[in-house]
Design a protein around this nucleic acid. Structure first.
Lengths: 166, 166
DNA sequence: CTACATCGTTAGCCGGACTAACGCAACAGG
DNA sequence: CCTGTTGCGTTAGTCCGGCTAACGATGTAG
């Protein structure tokens, strides 16, 4: 319908553009995302971290302390999974989980000094990993890619379940 | 809670961009891929299909019949999962699975006429879905995105496990 | 006081990527 | 001809990430 004219009525056996498989954005996205995830997970694994650790720590550093629900929205991590992530972070003393005196249902999560140090380390590691991930692209292209993805995300993040901020 | 405490322990002169969470390509990729997957799955679900069906059918149409192992490489679907996909396709008579006389270990998979018709339908559906997925982008930008992703994929697909063609 | 919403937490589902192992067939070399 | 190796299809199952459901404790509104 909304594709390049070519497919209207083709004899059976003829194709439109020869590599539709390769060009379908959905396929590309999921495949590249898979590669990316593998890379990031392996890399972060070597410094005893997971990508969620980064998300939470960065969110804390940039937007300040918050309840688990808040962090959940900021990072896009489900609050059911947030529990485990915060456990891991608390174990490592990168984060402090204290009951909120003003609302005893909540925990206030604060990043510790160690946490900040660790975050800096993770930022370095991630910079390197992204260098590897985006190796074939020039800086301008990397920027372009990021911009495009952000626009897609912003467009779809609205009516998404749980609709995360980032 | 939304206190932009940044200067907290930032070494003077060295300022991180404030929304690193939002700009990390790895995060963007996985988030957009998730949205994309949701969209595609829902859309295809409404015509009793999965994205794997499309991958296999398109591969058959474009590169001709092949063994399951061949299809596996062409589509990136693991051969252990290919079994199930082909079962589904064969149930629907979109594909024929016949033993290869030349090598009795193999099955030769052929697309049927029904399969070709179904593929055309799927292509339409996918065109629409991609229109929705890429809605915020101009045609030029969509193309740019696809190009960038292809380059990333090609770069990483080499040393990947199972290293699929597409 | 009652009804309802929110928070943290636990448990569990589901789909997708991936591995292990099997039986079978093909093939290469002695 | 036998023998070890490799490729094939299949089964089973692991692991992980996104997501739902439900609970007890707490807060809030009528």
């Amino acid at each position: 319908m909304t594709s390049r004219a070519e497919a209207a009525d083709m004899p059976p056996g003829e194709t439109k553009t020869p590599d539709r498989l390769r060009r379908r954005a959905s396929r590309l996205l999921s495949q590249v995302a898979t590669q990316s995830d593998r890379l990031i997970n392996e890399g972060l694994g070597q410094v005893d971290a997971r990508k969620w650790h980064y998300a939470v720590l960065a969110s804390l550093q940039e937007y300040g302390p918050g309840s688990q629900a808040t962090l959940s929205q900021r990072t896009g991590i489900y609050r059911s999974d947030m529990v485990g992530v915060l456990n891991e972070l608390a174990e490592r003393a990168l984060v402090e989980r204290a009951p909120d005196p003003d609302d005893r249902r909540r925990n206030v999560i604060t990043i510790t000094t160690q946490g900040r140090r660790h975050l800096r380390r993770l930022d370095e590691v991630l910079d390197d990993l992204h260098d590897e991930l985006l190796a074939p692209l020039t800086p301008a292209e990397r920027d372009q890619l990021v911009r495009l993805l952000i626009r897609l995300l912003d467009h779809h993040a609205q009516q998404a379940p749980h609709s995360p901020i980032s």
